[in-house]
Structure formats: C-alpha cells, structure tokens
Write a protein that binds this DNA or RNA. Structure first.
Lengths: 331, 331
DNA sequence: CTGAAAGCGCTTACAG
DNA sequence: CTGAAAGCGCTTACAG
C-alpha cells in the first residue's frame, strides 16, 4: 500500500507537496502538481485515515448508540443517520445496548476511547447519573425525551402533543373507552406519551381509568399482543387503544383478530413511529409519523456544531410529525 | 485526555512499563505495577485506538457493506454481525449501497482506505469485475450467492435446496399453479431460488409456466403487491405463490386480500427470510428461515481467519435453514 | 524486569 | 511555492 512518502519519491518532490495536492491546497506549481497527480495514479495512493486523524486530533467517527438494529424503527433511523453523516464525511460507529441499563452504561463507558468525535445516543432505560460514564469532553446529542435532566443537546418530536393528537383522533371517532399500551417506569418518552394520552382524555371530560393503561417493559410485537389480551379480558374492555409504538400496535392487532373482534369497528388502533410494516398490515395502521430523516439530520448537525465549538448552550430541536390515518381507525 | 506519557510521569516509570501493564504483559515488578495501576485510575486513562492501530498496522474495524439498514432482514443481520464482531474486539463500519450497482461500486472503492481490516459484503446488483474496485489486499467475505465467480470466501444457505423445499411444501398442499415472485436478471440469489422453484415443479411433473414467474427489480413490499396484482389478473391465476423474500410476500398477502381472496384457501403464500413481521401478519407467513446468527458468526469468523492468514484457499460455508410453516399455507 | 528511542503515516508551523 | 523536521499517541525491538 503506497504511502505519501512513496508518492513523493516517485514524483521527485517532498511529502509536503504531495500532501498539499492531496488536500487540495491551492498554491502548488503546475509542473509539480502534474507529476504528483501522475504518481498518485500510478501508485493508487489512498490516505491512511487513522494516521490523518491521529495528526488532526479527530477520529472522523461519530458514535450511534441505540437499543437494537433489528428493531424496524432503529434500523431505519440508523440508515438515515448514516446518510446524514456521510454528507459531512463522517463515518458511523454503531453500538447496540440491547435496551438494558447495563448495556447502555457499558456502551457509554467504552465510548470515551478516542474512537469517536461525538455520539448520538438513543437512551432507553438510562438513569440519572449514567451519563457521567461518558468520557468527559465527548459531545453527545440525545434522541427523544429521557428521564435525565442534563443540560445536553436533544432532538425529537413533541411527544406530549403527538400523543394528544393521536388520542384526540380516537375521540372524534366517538370512542370513550380508550386504552394505552406502553407505559414504562423509567422511560422518558413513555412518560411523555402517557401525559399526552391523559391530557387528551381530561380535555374531553373523560375520567381516567387506570385499568386501561397497560405497562410494557419491552416494545416488541409480543408485548403488544399480551397487553391487548389483558385489556380484552377486562369486564369493560376498551373500544380503542393507543400504542406507544407500531410494534406494540401490530401485536395488538393480532390479538384483537384472534379474539374474533374487528378493527376498527370493535376496537380502533393507533400506533407510533410509522414503520413501513404498518402500511401493509391488515388493517393498515393509523400511526404518529415522525419525520425520521429530519431527526437524523438535526442530530448530525447538532453534533457537528458541538464538536466544532465546545462552549455552546445546549439546544433542543423539535422535529415535525403528522398523524397518518389508515384503516385501523377507519381511514 | 491522559496519554501514556502522562500516566508514566505520574507513576514515575517509562511509557514502556505503562504500556506493558495496559496490554497485560506479564513481567512487571509488583511495586511498579501497583503504581501504574493507581496512575491509570487517577488519570482515567483510555488508550487512543487510532494511534494503537496505526502502530500495529491494523485498524480494528470490519466493514459491513449492505443495501439498506431499513430493510428488516439487513437491520437484523447487521445487529447480529455487530455482536459477533464485538466478541473479537472488532468495531463495525457499516456502509449502505442502496442496492444499486453504482452504490456498490462506489462503496467498494472507498473501502480501500486503511479504515478497515476486511469487509463482509452483501452484494445485490454487483457485476463481474466490480470486485476489482476493492483495494487489493483487503480480505472480503461475500454473503449469499452472486453472479461473480471469483475465488472468494462465502457464507450462505443453499438457496436452491431451500427454494425447492418451499415449493415442495406447496405441492404437498395439492397446489398446481404455483407462481414465483422475485426473479431478477442480475441477482445471484434470485437465480438460485428460481432454479430451486423450477426443479421442484419439474420433479413433480408440472410443466413450467413462464407467465407465473414474476420479476421483481426491488424486493420491497410494494413490489410484491404489484407483482401479485399482475398474477391475479392472469386468465389462469395461481393457487399458490413462492416469494423470494418476506417483504414481497407481505405485499402479496395484502393484494390477495384486496382482491377478496383468502389465504391460504384460494392462494397459499410462502416467503423467505423469516422476518419477525411475518409471524404477526394476518395470516402469519410460512417462510424459509435461515439461521441468521449462524450467517453473521460464520462471516466474522471467516473474515478473521483471512485477515490473520493471507494465503488460504477460498472457503464456502453453508449455514442451516428450516421451513417455518405458518397460517399462510394452513400451518 | 525496564528505559531510551525509533517509527507507524500523516499534517503543519517554520524557514527559506 | 516547497523542503526538512517535529510530533500526534502508541508499540516494540534493542540494550541493559
């Protein structure tokens, strides 16, 4: 593998001149430039990015910390972050935490190893104080709400408002026994969605019914299925359900059908995330659709800003969303 | 951020001794070891992996080249590769090609930049000769069949046999007009699955019907939906369909339902990949289930082997699969 | 068992 | 406009 030195020897100039050409420095004599370019081609030179970054004091990598790539929402989001990062010549180092607190702590701890310039973190079960594990000085952008109240850059939609809109939509269908699936003791996002759910009911003058709020410790399809089964076993079962993500909703759809009930006639269902899966399920799924590309783009931009300038005040970016009405609520 | 030199100064030893402790070299005097360990703790030292790798002549990174993380199969696979790589202290650099030939060529070309020790590549539209774009000397493991016939390490299931088993299953249900969705001019995997489909029909004495073989240039849900619509418009529509991945199958399921037909009574459907989505769809999806963890593990192992020893003969690893029978074929 | 020193491949003041 | 040289933070023969 050719190095700068090899190219310089072949072109009969110093490495400085080769470096100038490689890095697009303007003032290089024409004949030198020509000879360097020929030597570059002849040797098939590729810069050693490790060496370059060592010298420049940066790594060229951005860390992306998320629960699991196999979860559709995170797989899609990761793909969008990759694309946004590419535009800034950043490589992405993805770390999976598997959504557990230990996983998240271990990942954060391993991040401070000069491997990345900064990180985009999607916390799930992360608790107060865990962020201290992060090597000091590494810029971080947090995705979504979370229980930690640190002065830190954040990107996400307004979950309270989005949840309120989803539930209001169910109210306009005339539903009165609206359940929620996805409450979670340590998840900031879940707390926000629950708050939106409750405030929509309150605004409609409906008394809160705790038995209609189902906890989900995980957000997989099976958790939605089992939560829905419990709700349908209630003496007064729901006539609508707002699920805190699409996987929960897909599981709920399945359970409703297995009980011989119809969606939306007997039970209307709303999800959250706009996974593509939901537009092909039967019935197709009404869902809160966050602008995922906007989230990815804003997170990368914010991180870039903070990597370049250390002492900026923390910023919170609200990205847009819309309610995508489909068959599961009669759309 | 503390460097080896800082730690050495604090401990009153040379950097060599600190390096010995950090890297677990056995012969360090007890008192020196103790002082170094204290200094390590006091400074919160983290090795600069860039510098270490520059010195060691490796990068510590493995490249993973795939079409798109947002596709469930690849999201899941990427997660499994990440885990398998972690066990070997490898970081993973994911590159998305978006499944186009230009994307794949550009990605391969950019890989030879000292950033990775080797790559796991899942080619989609890659053609003969494109692999030459890869920087010479970078070890590569290819996932799945492909049209390029190079002496290169490969990992995948036996697609011909898997497809044959899937179609044989449809034959045992008494279906006689079995369609295929997913033929593709440049995709090696598609060619193998088509071959398996044809050989199963031939073995059953059924004449091949070209009108029942639907091409799909992409493998998304919408492509399955439109291909199925075309098949149902045939004068003699199919009574079963074998889709080359689960996304195509999910799209097909939707189209069949929209035409007022029942699955599996009117049309039985089999998919490929065992995306979790298919176990919650209605009806749930019969599918060829490759052992994805085995694929990820074998690919990482094979790559590791080749990174460590250059002149090994190319190897081809066949990973297991099974047919997962569910409701879409009456399971 | 351990120190002084070279060198991995780059970038970049500093001279000229 | 360009060269000689230092140095980013490591690891590792080479001496001792």
């Amino acid at each position: 593998m050719a190095t700068l030195k090899d190219v310089a020897a072949l072109a009969g100039v110093s490495v400085k001149t080769v470096s100038n050409v490689v890095n697009g420095y303007a003032f290089v004599r024409d004949d030198n430039r020509r000879r360097v370019e020929e030597a570059l081609l002849a040797t098939g030179y590729r810069p050693n990015l490790g060496a370059r970054n060592l010298r420049r004091g940066r790594t060229g990598f951005l860390g992306l910390v998320l629960p699991e790539l196999g979860i559709p929402y995170f797989g899609e989001l990761a793909g969008l972050v990759l694309r946004a990062a590419q535009a800034h010549e950043w490589n992405v180092l993805i770390e999976q935490t598997l959504g557990t607190r230990e996983g998240e702590r271990a990942t954060l701890a391993s991040l401070g190893t000069h491997l990345i310039d900064g990180a985009i973190v999607s916390p799930e079960a992360l608790m107060e104080g865990d962020f201290a594990e992060l090597a000091p000085g590494i810029p971080v952008v947090v995705l979504g709400e979370h229980s930690v109240d640190l002065p830190i850059d954040r990107v996400g939609i307004d979950n309270v408002r989005a949840a309120r809109e989803a539930v209001r939509h169910l109210l306009t269908l005339g539903r009165t026994r609206i359940a929620a699936i996805g409450a979670h003791p340590h998840r900031g996002t879940a707390a926000q969605r629950l708050e939106g759910y409750r405030s929509a009911l309150a605004a409609a003058g409906l008394p809160p019914r705790d038995d209609l709020v189902a906890t989900a410790l995980n957000y997989h399809r099976r958790d939605g299925a089992s939560a829905m089964a419990a709700l349908l076993a209630l003496p007064e079962p729901p006539d609508a359900v707002f699920c805190f993500n699409d996987l929960l909703a897909v599981g709920a759809l399945r359970t409703v059908a297995e009980h011989g009930l119809r969606v939306p006639e007997d039970v209307a269902v709303v999800g959250f995330d706009n996974d593509e899966e939901g537009s092909y399920s039967r019935p197709s799924l009404t869902t809160v659709a966050p602008d995922k590309a906007a989230i990815a783009g804003a997170a990368v931009d914010l991180l870039l800003r903070r990597v370049e300038t250390a002492d900026l005040p923390p910023e919170q970016v609200r990205t847009p969303f819309r309610l995508e009405v489909r068959e599961s609520t009669g759309g």
